[in-house]
Nucleic acid binder design. Structure first.
Lengths: 147, 147
DNA sequence: GTAACTGCAAAACTTTTGCAACCAG
DNA sequence: CTGGTTGCAAAAGTTTTGCAGTTAC
């Protein structure tokens, strides 16, 4: 790998291999959605927002397939789910450890890097036997100053 | 503060004042639900779980009213919402700063006390003008060890 | 008495699912 | 070909809402 520029995780002409590598058949819809998700900057999407984006670009895909695809990508480790609102699922293309800023008024999510002592968390928390810590999520909630 | 015994926030015979203090008319349903929520230990409920509990005790209340009441209590500051799952709203009777352990398999929530340097968070985060940090929530997710 | 509140059912949303048609290999 | 995928519509699950009737004060 020649790391001279921000390497996109996904290349239009080799998307098929990218999906096969995680056990997913590279279908038209998956390739198109992966292209939207992984070709550029890291991003946060909802099923609805990705569906609208795909549709706007002329990609023929159903909302149900977007939901299914997002969940498949999540299970394959290509996406992370971000839980910030009880009524909506957000997905983040950045899978490395980081945390989130959530604007409760607009619904916008941004990444924030906080040094969390995961070791401190592991020491503080009594993990029941048979269980493991699947993740530590921090959400910083923003609201308008006036109520 | 004389903290010699676990002071219930809510006393059956003075629940009315407790609700009036936050601007809510003490109706039968609100008194009954407040009794369930605030008479004993701190607890975590969903609308559904509280509705079932109330119904089991013979309290006549509708699910819609439980939803409305939980949201009114939240707005009044008597409850905190805990967002751990995109498809369900949880409410916590403990309103002081603390964090949560969430078992993704069973859906159970427990409190966990982590010393988070809120000041560090405030320094790290660029708060847009007109916005304030409404809260910093940490969720430690537990899953079964085998996948 | 009257405004606030409740109950019910319906509506609104988000997400999942069943199944016939379709497509990748 | 053949099984994995997709699309559609329907179903499922949670939460909100409209409105007539009830209740607190």
């Amino acid at each position: 790998m020649t790391e001279t520029r921000p390497t996109p995780k996904f290349e239009e002409d080799e998307g098929a291999g990218y999906l096969r590598a995680v056990g997913l058949r590279p279908t038209q819809q998956r390739l198109a959605l992966a292209g939207l998700l992984f070709s550029g900057e890291d991003r946060h999407v909802t099923a609805e927002s990705l569906y609208e984006e795909a549709t706007a670009q002329g990609v023929r895909v159903s909302l149900a397939t977007v939901y299914n695809t997002l969940n498949q990508f999540k299970d394959a480790g290509l996406l992370r789910e971000v839980v910030v609102h009880a009524g909506k699922s957000y997905f983040d293309t950045k899978t490395e450890s980081h945390h989130h800023l959530y604007d409760e008024d607009s619904g916008k999510i941004e990444d924030v890097h906080l040094e969390v002592d995961e070791e401190q968390v592991r020491r503080k928390v009594e993990v029941p036997s048979g269980k493991r810590i699947a993740g530590v999520d921090i959400v910083v909630r923003l609201r308008e100053h006036k109520g």
